[in-house]
Simulated scan of single mutants.
Amino acid sequence: MAGPDCERDYSWIEKVKSGGSVPCLEPENCSNGWATPPGDKFMIRGPNYLSDKVKIPGGGYILKPLGFDWIKGPTKIGNLLSNTNHRVRRAIDDETARGNNPFVWAFNLQIPSKDNYSAIAYFVALEPIQDDILVDKFLKGDDTFRNSRLKLIANIVEGPWIVRTAVGEQAICILGRALSCKYMSESNYFEVDVDIGSSMVANAIVHLAFSYLTTLTVDLAFLIESQTQEELPEQILGAVRFSELNPDSAGLYELSSEVGSGSLQSSLPTRLWKSIGLGLPQLLHLGNQDFSSPISDNANGGLHSEADEKNNENS
């Protein structure tokens, strides 16, 4: 049985989980908050996927959920964990000073808008990553390798028909092939800043979804795609659910005086929204296709729906 010392060791995680601008709640009822969805909600590549194309429920996660931030800033927010005043970075530094060695992952989804919103999911590994496994190769790999492997699975759990149609059923995206990603790796954290505004199609879909944000419940899973037999079956790093987020609930991001201007990137001009020019029929058609190319998941392409993948496998 775990003693008091073990409980104290993990108390910092609970503090981070409850420290954001929106609360950590139960998955079944997390209005204007966030939660950890069941892993079985996501379908991932099974042990013989390369030969039988069979996917399996996701199951458990590699990493522990650590927190979620819903924030906004004067310009696009990035490189958060280099900011020593940021609450998660402070928690990392405090634990390191106590002789512990947590390794934190941050997935920062930069949402194109005039208020520069970011939705950031944090996860933590409490034990060292084993050498030569896929996660280790990803952390040690170059950006080309990372761009070819980091996968996002998105499910619209609740939401209006128009958003469900635009996003598709269980949309799958190799992030670095569809969007511009910036990776920051240090001894105790790994951050990915995902610029959703870097893709015209993603830009338009997210702009549509943002209009219905207070009615949406969304599940997002992050994983490293398995592309060889020895890497199978896939495992999900971590997942987050956010529900009915209110833009007014977003916290204001404060930049550390130690962090240079490179951490706040130039925002997307408002006039871009007027220049998108995508009619609704086009948007709904594009929503179920690759952000970057019409390649299916079987060929390790970009965004597509689960239905698209089944059609490709049967053709």
Rank of each mutant, 00 (worst) to 15 (best):
E244L: 12
E191Y: 08
G279A: 14
K137G: 10
F222I: 08
E225V: 04
N155S: 08
S293G: 11
Y10F: 13
L223E: 02
D93L: 13
V218L: 03
M1C: 11
S21G: 03
G277H: 07
M43Y: 10
A204Q: 06
S113F: 04
D131P: 10
L175P: 07
F138G: 05
E169I: 07
H304A: 10
S11Y: 13
D248N: 00
E26L: 14
S249G: 03
I120F: 01
S199I: 03
K114C: 04
Q227M: 12
I196M: 02
E26R: 13
P27Y: 13
N312C: 04
D195L: 02
N155G: 06
R177S: 02
L278Y: 15
G33P: 03
S31T: 15
K274W: 05
I224S: 13
L278S: 01
K76M: 12
G59A: 09
E26H: 14
G262A: 11
P233T: 11
Q289G: 05
Y183T: 14
A166N: 02
R8N: 14
D290P: 01
L139P: 13
C181M: 12
L245S: 03
K41L: 12
P37H: 11
I236W: 06
A35D: 01
Y122E: 04
I153L: 11
I71C: 07
L175W: 01
E186G: 07
N83S: 08
G168M: 00
N79W: 05
C30G: 00
C173N: 03
H86E: 12
G279P: 04
P269V: 09
R89N: 07
S82W: 09
P269D: 01
N312V: 11
E254H: 15
L232Q: 01
K64G: 06
P47D: 06
L109G: 10
V124D: 02
S82Q: 12
D93P: 04
I120A: 06
N108K: 00
L272R: 13
K182Y: 11
S198M: 00
A171C: 10
S257M: 10
K310R: 10
P23H: 12
A178R: 02
K55D: 00
P57E: 13
S187Y: 08
S113L: 06
A204D: 07
G262V: 13
P233M: 14
L50Q: 08
L109E: 11
R45K: 12
Y122K: 05
P65H: 07
P294M: 07
S18E: 13
P128F: 07
N312A: 08
Q265H: 15
L208H: 02
